[in-house]
Design a protein around this nucleic acid. Structure first.
Lengths: 357, 357
DNA sequence: ATATTTTACGAAAACGTTTTCGTGTTGACA
DNA sequence: TGTCAACACGAAAACGTTTTCGTAAAATAT
């Protein structure tokens, strides 16, 4: 039950100075071969490892990046984390996770907790409440203190930083065009209320696809679900709403849903109403998660490549962190030389399964 | 783009000493009211927040706990993380996440990376490869360096530490008894190979339930799946295996599967073979995740209460960390006084859905 | 033998805190 | 007027590193 050994203890034990130990361990040629060997052997014996905290303090960088997401029990977000962790680890960084739980206040608290030296930069996705409030001062404050942020998926123009987003618009267009190509005439959209940017974009994609194929959008075929309540635990409400929707629109041939859950629920309801999938109605969802793969019938979806998003975000952040190292600080206050902020768009891909022909 | 302000800068600006600033900010009555006010106002204006790293170094504790899990894209593990994060945050701790990806080596690397001062203690679940190798020296080494560990779910007797586990055995017993009670005569078990402790325990529970009801176990009714290959991406292999199993055992009335995926796959296969669920065959799975809830028919499962596991683990760890603070160090080297290691068993619960009568 | 260059190491500062201890100034009291 | 406590503050150490600079002793050159 002995604490980890420190330089000072080694120095004392071997009757040399702390500086000598430090140099010997980094193979400085200032130190004689004899002494170096002796010190390294001793250090190895006692399994010396430099204390990270001390290093962080000295170097004024922690080699850890903070992730702040709305929710972790969510396939998309966990794949993103996995992606971040992959490249972070490869590049020598650790990952510290905060959950906003979709709450504005928790988002702020978490950021303040981490911004005080614990991390070198943020990768985050904005909480719903923050998007509703449209209050982004905490992001800008953090950035102004010299801490870089990379936003992914749920991003916002009001904050100047690197961003990695899914091509929600084109993803939706592709999906709806596929339904049209498969012969669907009346195509329904199941979406959320508009304030979450991604929902909005997917809705726009749906409209665009219809229009470019000369189909007039029918507002009766658009079902907007209020997801401010916890849908996961109110499945019956969701299903009842969808059932009602199907009943008042018996002519639906295709359904495009902006997430997995809506899509799977739609399939479930449709089948209960005696409709065959994909014969009577075809369904495409967004977000390629566990549900899509294992539903019966399995669901054709628009894949967002969460892991890739995570990897790119991490690379963007670390690139910027390490650029700060080499470049003299002035370059960053000098607008001419400043590296511009990057917006990476990750293309979607349609994964065809049993719910479409 | 100005860096965060420090005590030293405040001191310089107000022409007092660093110690005065520090004391004023903590409302020490050593400092006059005038000076205190002046300093606090200035600090507030510049949004001073003490640097966490410096505090960690000084206090020799980081107020962060390290989580090390095999995989994050997994409903059970993410609910556990959510639980940990909840209580950690409430009690003033941060959470740093490492993923072993089921690999022995990555587990070790991650532990070494974090054990050097970055965290105060670990909460972890052992990787499959480590369980296979049965090499637990890295855990014991960490503990010997004075860093407490709490293990959850996949635990092992060879390591002396607090543990939080699911009552896998009784969960399985309950599930199988339910099938028996529902009139099932021939009950199949779909399980993994034995080296993952939880799989083993669930298998034992199955056998126990049969025996205590006077039913003789039939080895033909036990299907062991080799999950060393990536099942998620080899669904067809899994389904083919299960299909073969059903065909050679046409008399199966009930199925108990040790995880969600196997259960859902079993339902899928059964239905393709023309069997009605739950009329012809009833199914119960383990692990109450998204799949169970949204499958059609929805799956009756044994819930593990992942979030609760996380919460209890975090409480156990933090309790121990803070006990170290108050208790003189000697108490811990003194065996008489040492708090014993705790093994918490979280009871399972059967969530009834459509796959059983 | 003297001058000069290596060689091999130690002292000290710095990162940003908190805390212990010391000390000069003030005011009260005898 | 002298003594002493209270007050208000500063200096310094400590946490564990790395790195710059200084300097004896040894080696080499003249």
């Amino acid at each position: 039950m002995k604490r980890k050994i420190t330089l000072k203890q080694i120095a004392k034990e071997l009757d040399v100075s702390v500086s000598t130990v430090s140099k010997a361990l980094s193979n400085s040629k200032e130190i004689s071969e004899d002494t170096t060997q002796k010190i390294q052997a001793f250090a190895k014996l006692y399994n010396y490892k430099p204390n990270n905290i001390a290093l962080s303090l000295k170097n004024r960088k922690t080699k850890t990046i903070g992730i702040l997401i709305p929710e972790i029990v969510h396939h998309f977000f966990s794949t993103v984390i996995r992606g971040i962790e992959r490249v972070a680890n490869r590049r020598g960084y650790n990952v510290i996770v905060g959950l906003s739980n979709e709450s504005f206040t928790k988002e702020i608290i978490n950021m303040e907790m981490l911004a005080n030296g614990s991390i070198d930069g943020f990768i985050l996705s904005i909480s719903k409440e923050t998007l509703l409030k449209q209050d982004y001062h905490h992001f800008n404050a953090t950035i102004n203190q010299g801490m870089p942020i990379v936003m992914f998926d749920r991003v916002v123009d009001e904050v100047d930083c690197d961003k990695v987003i899914v091509d929600d618009f084109n993803g939706a267009v592709k999906a709806v065009k596929k339904l049209i190509g498969n012969g669907c005439k009346h195509i329904a959209l199941i979406t959320t209320l508009d304030y979450v940017s991604v929902g909005k974009l997917r809705t726009q994609g749906y409209l665009e696809a219809l229009q470019s194929n000369g189909i007039e959008a029918d507002s009766n075929l658009i079902l907007k679900i209020d997801d401010s309540l916890d849908v996961e635990n109110n499945l019956d409400v969701l299903e009842a709403e969808i059932a009602q929707f199907f009943k008042s629109n018996p002519n639906i041939h295709g359904v495009f849903a902006v997430n997995e859950l809506y899509a799977v629920s739609a399939m479930k309801v449709a089948r209960k109403l005696g409709l065959k999938i994909p014969d009577d109605v075809q369904v495409i969802g967004f977000t390629d998660g566990v549900l899509s793969k294992h539903a019966t019938p399995s669901l054709t979806t628009v894949s967002q490549h969460g892991q890739k998003i995570g990897e790119q975000s991490a690379n963007l952040l670390i690139d910027r962190l390490e650029a700060e190292d080499t470049q003299p600080e002035q370059y960053f206050t000098n607008n001419e030389q400043k590296r511009d902020f990057i917006k990476l768009v990750i293309e979607t891909e349609i994964i065809e399964r049993e719910s479409t022909k």
